[in-house]
């Protein structure tokens, strides 16, 4: 079987019980994606599949034949950090750093969902043209990613700053 991870096609053969997260961490040495609960409750394992965010601990690796996976290791380009990664450092959007890869991947896909006009549970006007990505929208849309150190304020500030800086 093969899978495209951060732009590289990788052949793999694993026990069918292996999760996408364990494939990354235990078999491919890509330990950037983290295991915090292994049951889809904490979001530390968030990766992008064809641009959409999923909990990789709840995904069986064998279901992702031929799909494009982006992990935290794939966010930087040519050695330059993604603007969101730089903003996380500037705004102190983490302490221990363990939930950080999941927060970053989740935020990248979250902004994409918002750009596509997808509403959230706190969106007041579902039919409105252009939902404002305000503090409440960011907090709601990021609530699947737990941070026990409590870096939530910094994460929201980093996302806001990055979004404001987009062209």
């Amino acid at each position: 079987m093969d899978i495209i991870i951060n732009g590289r096609t990788i052949e793999f053969s694993v026990d069918p019980r292996t999760s996408l997260l364990d494939l990354l961490r235990d078999h491919l040495g890509l330990t950037g994606s983290k295991k915090g609960c292994n049951q889809g409750a904490c979001g530390a394992c968030t990766v992008l599949v064809d641009g959409e965010r999923i909990n990789s601990c709840l995904a069986l690796a064998v279901q992702y034949q031929g799909r494009k996976i982006t992990t935290v290791e794939g966010l930087a380009r040519n050695g330059d950090l993604h603007s969101l990664q730089r903003a996380f450092i500037e705004h102190d959007g983490f302490q221990c750093g363990y939930c950080t890869p999941g927060q970053l991947c989740s935020a990248v896909a979250m902004v994409d969902e918002w750009e596509r006009g997808l509403p959230s549970v706190v969106t007041q006007e579902l039919a409105a043209q252009g939902i404002a990505l305000d503090r409440d929208e960011i907090r709601e849309r990021m609530s699947g990613n737990l941070c026990r150190c409590g870096a939530y304020n910094g994460i929201v500030e980093a996302i806001t700053a990055t979004f404001e800086n987009l062209p």
Partner: peptide, 14 residues
């Protein structure tokens, strides 16, 4: 910071 935002900080299980 740079290590942590790239997932390069190596934790005990890694």
């Amino acid at each position: 910071g740079a290590l942590k935002v790239q997932g390069k900080a190596r934790f005990a299980a890694e």
